Simulated assay, not measured.
Amino acid sequence: MLDVFEIIDPRFRDLILPIAWLERLHTGMRWCEGPVYFADQRCLIWSDIPNNRLMRWCEDTQAVGVFRADSNFANGNTRDRQGRLVTCEHRTRRLTRTEPDGTLTVLADRYRGARLNSPNDVVVKSDGTLWFTDPTYGIASDYEGGRAEPEQDGRYVFRLDPRAGTLAVVADDFGQPNGLAFSPDESLLYIADSGGIGREAGNRHIRAFTVRADNTLADSRVVTEVTPHAPDGFRVDEAGRLWSSAGDGVHCYTPEGDLLGKIRVPERVGNLAFGGAAGNRLFICGHTSLYAVFVNTRGARPPAPKRL
């Protein structure tokens, strides 16, 4: 059996369970992405992008099935403050919300009159705003969406206020913005730049931004470089540590960027999510398979929204 945990810093020992192992829950996919855990339904939904479908795994029965057969080449997923599924779609180049009756509501598909590139990953803040990245991966070929020319003059990170219906650029200097996550207190927003994927040169790092009171970003800094491959999706735990995808598995970093250790996975990792009854089960989207491993920490939970 694969030696799952690689300890680089002794502090990593406190975050792992020596008796836990890496479980492969399902395989046979082409590129797994966008896992989101539904605690109230004890299930995980994730994307199989090239196969153009959303998948669902049930924790109680271990059953796996197709949640949505035609997902518009969905990538990143999250839940909003009302528990509804929010999805980044490559083919339609839009951000959508799944309503309780199964219908789709388009949240964003254009900025200043031009179509978005291909929304990639999305997170929700406790105030209900949605923050998502818009690289060009979904329009670079027909494999993950539909080949097309970009209409935006940049590869932006957006903030959407669904109540006001406003869409704003919060960062505009990324090669290819990818995964993103808030710190537990939402004072920081971390964003991956995977501009080096498929290129000899380009960014392969995670940056941190200070989140101002007016929901703008400031004080950008590189937290860590991620190799092999590049950072794609990542999550933050209850202590603010970053758990990032990489070419050899999952890397765990302190908020300051120190590499504590790795969870070895036998294929490239695209994204991950905390879940399970206690929030201590890490679900990992490998290239072709969905994995899970129990760890000795919990995923960060957003603070309660402020009363107005």
Score class of each variant (00 low, 15 high):
G247T: 02
F234V: 01
S244A: 15
D219L: 12
A201I: 15
Y253V: 09
G196T: 12
R204I: 02
Y253D: 03
E200I: 13
G249M: 08
F209E: 07
L259I: 09
A192K: 03
H229Y: 12
A201R: 12
E256H: 05
V226T: 10
E225V: 15
A208D: 00
D219P: 04
V226P: 04
H251I: 12
V222E: 11
I197M: 04
R204Q: 04
G195Y: 12
V222A: 07
G233R: 13
D237T: 09
G198L: 10
H205T: 11
A230G: 07
R235D: 05
N215K: 01
N203K: 07
N203R: 14
Y253C: 00
G247E: 04
N215F: 08
S194P: 02
S220L: 10
S245P: 03
A201D: 15
F234G: 00
A239N: 06
V223G: 03
E238Q: 13
V222L: 07
T210I: 09
F209R: 10
L217I: 14
L259Y: 10
D258W: 04
N215S: 14
T210G: 00
R241I: 14
D193F: 06
R241D: 11
Y253P: 00
L242F: 08
A218P: 01
G195S: 14
D214P: 06
W243C: 03
L259M: 07
L217A: 08
D258K: 04
E256I: 06
Y253G: 01
V226W: 11
E238W: 01
D237W: 03
Y253A: 02
R235F: 09
H229P: 00
R221H: 13
G196H: 10
E225L: 15
L217Q: 03
F234I: 05
